[in-house]
């Protein structure tokens, strides 16, 4: 187990994501592959969070093959396991809400994003949580993310509201800023740690 580092920047070896051919690694205890679906209102910065994560904040010139809406990235944890995230972005506009089940079917992780300056987006996030509780894969790991944490002066959703809601629903909660890259790696590392392992080592 032993993944307790709170200094993920130092502890995580970052793989480029390039050396992983699509089917080259089967899922095993050491190398997990997980489908992660991103949900949240349009404009909350879902794709920015992922881009931050995939491109990394230390080397902005790193050329990772990225699509605009599907991205994958592998991280290494301290216990020498690796987790390959296959990140499925979803369209956040209301008119596409009914299509979401097509995307979260079979997902091991759902990251539900809202914008801390937008109470509407927080309400929408709660809608997604309920929907996933009803229809998501059993055992899906859910994270609630308040994004745009750099916009403190415009904050309209209190940190405590996010904390309380997440706790009540057994979710991991974090506030991030895709702009400053705050907590972006922490988000994915926390998720990686919470993934069920085929056989604990």
């Amino acid at each position: 187990m032993g993944c307790s580092s709170s200094l993920p920047d130092r502890s995580s070896g970052r793989s480029t994501g390039l050396n992983n051919a699509d089917n080259s690694e089967g899922p095993d205890a050491k190398n997990l592959r997980v489908k992660l679906v991103l949900l949240g209102d349009s404009g909350v910065g879902k794709s920015c969070i992922v881009l931050r994560f995939v491109r990394g904040q230390f080397d902005p010139t790193s050329k990772v093959t990225v699509g605009a809406s599907f991205l994958s990235q592998t991280i290494a944890l301290q216990d020498s396991t690796t987790v390959k995230f296959e990140i499925w972005d979803t369209a956040g506009q209301e008119r596409y809400a009914a299509l979401a089940p097509l995307y979260y079917r079979g997902a091991g992780v759902a990251v539900i994003v809202y914008d801390i300056t937008s109470p509407e987006s927080f309400t929408k996030a709660q809608y997604w949580v309920k929907e996933l509780q009803k229809h998501g894969s059993p055992g899906i790991v859910m994270a609630l993310v308040g994004n745009k944490a750099d916009l403190l002066e415009k904050r309209e959703v209190a940190v405590q509201d996010g904390v309380d809601y997440a706790e009540k629903n057994g979710m991991f909660f974090i506030e991030t800023s895709a702009k400053t890259a705050d907590n972006i790696n922490q988000l994915f590392e926390e998720i990686a740690k919470r993934l069920p392992r085929p056989s604990p080592s």
Partner: peptide, 11 residues
């Protein structure tokens, strides 16, 4: 244009 991910892709 801010990369909109699926918000732009699906439409």
């Amino acid at each position: 244009h801010v990369l909109g991910g699926a918000d732009d892709f699906l439409p």
